[in-house]
């Protein structure tokens, strides 16, 4: 068993993120005494790992628990069982201040860029905030760094003093990605990050994520319901159904020979370009 290296050097073959036996039960109804009356198991014993530099797609319909998994990984929500290891550190054991420091390593891009960017914050603060928090960066150096990031995600670098509402949906999602990059993360979780976008801006954001993965050897967890998108970007795929991981495989293998019945149903239902009626 190769335990994590004592010298602190990362073993290149060890996974970036390990999710182990994650379970989350929500109380959906309480009785007159405030005690749980009805429970919903959103995630049940989910385990998987993200390897360095791969794009892992977590696929599932609404209510499959895929967004809950993202919230459990990032510790926005506490899991009822299991562990989350990021670069070998168990996030479930961390206290708040330690967790705040660790969070740099795993960033999240949310589905709705209209809701995930604070409407009262200017671009320079939105994008620069992770650097202020984690690098204690001076205001003077911030502008240049933010400009470089905006440039990297294909936004005009003179938009430092604009507000989110001055951007289109696709551009806002680039802002969100720039902000995630500002933390210099090892892992990015994209939770339905292109679902709300039009096809043409969706294609641009997907291409951007693919390029960033190449250039920065990012590890990406791509959470989506859109199998077409998954086909374009994923190296490996996990299929979630009713809170359980029912199938996991290399992307090509999963599309060519799905084994679980749910995966087959899913693939049969997807409309395909060029399959005329």
């Amino acid at each position: 068993m190769p335990e994590s290296d004592i010298s602190g050097v990362q073993d290149v073959t060890s996974p970036r993120v390990v999710a182990e036996n994650l379970t989350k039960v929500f109380v959906t109804k309480r009785n007159a005494f405030g005690l749980p009356a009805r429970r919903l198991t959103a995630v049940r014993g989910v385990s998987f790992e993200l390897r360095q530099g791969e794009i892992y797609a977590l696929v599932g319909g609404s209510g499959s628990g895929k967004s809950t998994v993202a919230r459990l990984l990032t510790r926005l929500e506490k899991s009822d069982t299991g562990r989350v290891l990021v670069n070998g550190t168990d996030w479930t054991l961390l206290r708040r201040s330690a967790l705040q420091k660790q969070r740099r390593a795993m960033q999240m891009v949310f589905q709705n860029p209209y809701a995930s960017l604070d409407p009262t914050s200017m671009v320079v603060h939105l994008v620069g905030e992770p650097m202020i928090i984690h690098e204690k960066l001076a205001r003077r150096d911030l502008d240049a760094r933010v400009r470089a990031l905006l440039d990297d995600v294909g936004l005009p670098s003179d938009s430092l003093h604009k507000y989110p509402h001055e951007f289109s949906g696709g551009q806002r999602q680039r802002l969100a990605i720039a902000r995630a990059l500002a933390a210099d993360p090892d892992v990015i979780i994209a939770d339905e990050a292109v679902s709300a976008l039009d096809v043409s801006s969706q294609a641009k954001v997907l291409n951007l994520l693919l390029r960033l993965r190449r250039e920065r050897s990012l590890t990406i967890l791509f959470i989506t319901h859109d199998l077409g998108v998954v086909r374009q970007v994923a190296d490996r795929i996990g299929v979630l159904s009713e809170g359980e991981l029912v199938e996991e495989a290399q992307a090509d293998a999963l599309f060519d020979e799905p084994t679980h019945e749910y995966t087959r149903t899913l693939l049969r239902s997807v409309p395909i370009m060029g399959r005329w009626r």
Binding site: V199, S200, D226, R231, Q232, D252, L267, I272, M273, G274
Partner: peptide, 11 residues
């Protein structure tokens, strides 16, 4: 538009 659609059939 056709070229931008992420298609399940081909990567």
């Amino acid at each position: 538009l056709v070229g931008a659609v992420p298609d399940v059939a081909n990567r």
